[in-house]
Amino acid sequence: MRKSRIFNPTLILVCCLFLKCGSVENNKIGGNPIYHAQNFRAIVVPQTKHKIPSTNGQHQIVTYTTSLTKWSFLNFAWEEYIVNHPEIDFIFYYSGADTVALKEWLSLNKFSSPVLFDIDGEFKRDNIKDKKLTSISFVVKKGSIIDFSNPSQPDFEKVLRELLSQD
């Protein structure tokens, strides 16, 4: 009996890996510089208790989103990590449609960090190659993107400790 080569599981696996690597290639890690938006407005609400982070810090978690839905990266449990790692700058960029909705969302969700409203979409243009992407978090060391991670990842605390121990 002759095997069909069309549905070869090995070939399908190789194709999937190739496609996955191709999508990672679109947002490379491992030394690409991070470009912070120059034209932004810091959005704060009464619940904001953290200062506007430095975009020049040695250790950063830089999060970008265009969404305020339940799938937004802003909905992750950031507070514990921000409090436990004051030596890391947690920077949140938003480039959604309007700041009124953002302010309402920040108040309603008691989000305690300022969010940088990227007025001209600079951050996405300069850092994100996949234009369909609506949320991403970069791990940044000395101005270079070294990884992707966020509090939804079970090893996020480990990622933060490794970021600090690489000095």
Rank of each mutant, 00 (worst) to 15 (best):
32 N>R: 10
32 N>Q: 15
33 P>A: 15
33 P>K: 15
34 I>F: 01
34 I>C: 00
35 Y>D: 10
36 H>S: 07
37 A>R: 01
37 A>P: 12
37 A>M: 11
38 Q>A: 11
38 Q>N: 11
39 N>A: 05
39 N>S: 05
41 R>V: 09
41 R>T: 10
42 A>R: 05
42 A>Y: 04
44 V>A: 11
45 V>Y: 09
45 V>E: 06
45 V>N: 10
46 P>S: 03
47 Q>R: 14
47 Q>W: 12
48 T>E: 08
49 K>W: 05
49 K>S: 14
49 K>Q: 14
50 H>K: 15
50 H>M: 08
51 K>R: 04
52 I>E: 05
52 I>A: 06
53 P>A: 04
54 S>F: 00
55 T>S: 08
58 Q>D: 10
58 Q>E: 11
58 Q>M: 12
59 H>Q: 13
60 Q>T: 02
61 I>M: 14
62 V>S: 08
62 V>D: 07
63 T>Y: 11
65 T>Q: 00
66 T>W: 01
67 S>K: 04
69 T>S: 11
69 T>N: 02
70 K>D: 01
71 W>L: 13
71 W>S: 09
72 S>K: 01
72 S>I: 00
73 F>V: 08
73 F>A: 10
74 L>Q: 00
74 L>P: 00
74 L>K: 02
74 L>A: 01
77 A>K: 10
77 A>H: 14
78 W>M: 06
80 E>F: 09
80 E>P: 08
81 Y>V: 13
83 V>H: 11
83 V>S: 11
83 V>A: 12
84 N>S: 08
88 I>K: 11
88 I>H: 15
88 I>R: 09
89 D>G: 00
89 D>E: 10
90 F>G: 12
91 I>Y: 04
91 I>R: 08
91 I>S: 03
92 F>W: 13
92 F>Y: 09
93 Y>M: 05
95 S>M: 06
96 G>D: 01
96 G>W: 00
96 G>R: 00
97 A>K: 15
98 D>G: 15
99 T>N: 02
100 V>D: 08
101 A>H: 03
101 A>P: 01
102 L>G: 04
102 L>A: 07
103 K>R: 07
105 W>V: 02
105 W>C: 06
105 W>N: 07
105 W>E: 11
106 L>F: 13
107 S>D: 07
109 N>W: 04
111 F>Q: 11
113 S>W: 03
113 S>D: 13
114 P>L: 07
114 P>G: 11
115 V>G: 00
115 V>Y: 01
115 V>M: 02
116 L>H: 02
117 F>T: 07
117 F>E: 15
119 I>W: 12
121 G>Y: 01
122 E>Y: 04
123 F>H: 10
124 K>N: 03
125 R>A: 15
126 D>W: 08
129 K>C: 12
129 K>L: 12
132 K>V: 02
133 L>A: 13
133 L>W: 09
133 L>V: 07
135 S>A: 09
136 I>D: 12
137 S>G: 07
138 F>Q: 00
138 F>L: 03
141 K>E: 01
142 K>R: 14
142 K>S: 14
